[in-house]
Amino acid sequence: TYYTVKSGDTANKIAAQYGVSVANLRSWNGISGDLIFVGQKLIVKKG
């Protein structure tokens, strides 16, 4: 599943929404920190 980042989103918020850990969200998308951008497409695997 892909999720498009919206204004006000955070890695924590997206992870919680899908029931996954922030560490997994980072791993699936090659993100090292919490910096995400509006319009960015993230791979999300439901927990």
Rank of each mutant, 00 (worst) to 15 (best):
S21H: 06
K46W: 15
R26M: 15
K41S: 09
W28G: 02
S7M: 14
L35Q: 14
A16Y: 09
K46M: 15
S27F: 12
V22S: 05
K13N: 10
V5Y: 02
S7I: 14
Y3E: 02
G8S: 06
N24V: 11
K45W: 12
Y2D: 06
S7L: 14
N24L: 13
L42Q: 01
N24T: 12
G8H: 06
V22A: 08
V5K: 00
V44F: 05
L35W: 10
I43C: 09
D34Q: 08
V5W: 05
K13S: 15
S21Q: 06
D34T: 08
V44I: 13
K45M: 12
S7F: 14
N24H: 10
K13R: 09
N29P: 01
Q17A: 13
S21A: 07
A23F: 06
V20Q: 04
Y2R: 06
Q17N: 09
S27M: 13
G47V: 13
G39K: 03
Y3F: 03
Y18C: 10
G30S: 10
Q17I: 13
N24P: 00
S21N: 07
G8W: 04
T1P: 10
S27V: 11
A16R: 11
V38M: 07
A16G: 08
G30C: 13
G47M: 12
V5H: 02
I43P: 01
G8E: 06
V22W: 06
N12F: 13
G47K: 10
G39N: 06
K41E: 10
K6N: 07
D9Y: 00
G39L: 03
T4D: 06
R26N: 08
T1V: 14
I31W: 07
I43M: 10
G30H: 11
I31L: 15
N24F: 07
N24Y: 07
G47P: 15
Y3M: 05
L42P: 01
T10M: 03
S27L: 14
Q40M: 11
K41H: 10
A15Y: 03
K45E: 10
I31E: 05
Y3T: 04
G30Q: 11
G19P: 01
A23M: 08
S27T: 11
A16K: 12
A16T: 10
N29E: 02
N29K: 00
Q17T: 10
S21T: 13
T1S: 11
S7D: 14
G30K: 10
A11L: 15
S32M: 13
V20F: 03
G30V: 07
A15V: 02
V20D: 02
R26S: 09
Q40T: 07
Q40F: 04
N29Y: 02
S32H: 12
Q40G: 03
A23C: 11
N24S: 11
N29F: 03
Q40W: 04
V20T: 08
G39W: 04
G47T: 12
S7R: 09
G39P: 00
I14V: 08
I31C: 10
Y18W: 14
N29V: 01
A11S: 07
I14D: 00
K46C: 15
G19A: 07
Q40C: 05
Y2V: 09
W28F: 04
G39D: 06
V5R: 00
A23H: 10
T4F: 10
A15K: 01
K46N: 12
A11T: 15
K46H: 12
V22H: 04
D34E: 10
I14C: 00
K46R: 12
V38A: 09
I31S: 05
D34K: 07
Q17C: 12
G47C: 13
A23L: 07
S27N: 11
N12W: 13
S21D: 10
L35G: 11
F37K: 10
Y18H: 13
G39T: 03
K6S: 08
I43F: 08
G33K: 07
Y3H: 14
G33W: 06
T10R: 03
K13D: 11
G33A: 09
T10C: 05
I14R: 00
G47E: 14
A16M: 11
S7E: 15
S32N: 13
G30T: 07
S27K: 14
T1F: 14
L35S: 12
F37Q: 09
D9L: 00
A23K: 09
V22T: 08
K13G: 14
V38K: 06
K41G: 05
V22F: 04
I36Y: 05
T4A: 05
D9G: 00
I43W: 09
L25H: 00
G19Q: 09
A16F: 10
A16C: 12
A11W: 15
G19H: 09
T4Y: 12
V20G: 01
Y18P: 01
K45D: 11
D34S: 08
G19C: 10
Q40P: 02
V22L: 13
A23R: 08
T1W: 14
G39V: 02
G30A: 09
F37A: 09
R26V: 13
V5F: 04
Q40R: 06
Y18I: 07
G47I: 13
V20E: 05
W28C: 04
T1E: 14
R26Y: 13
D34I: 07
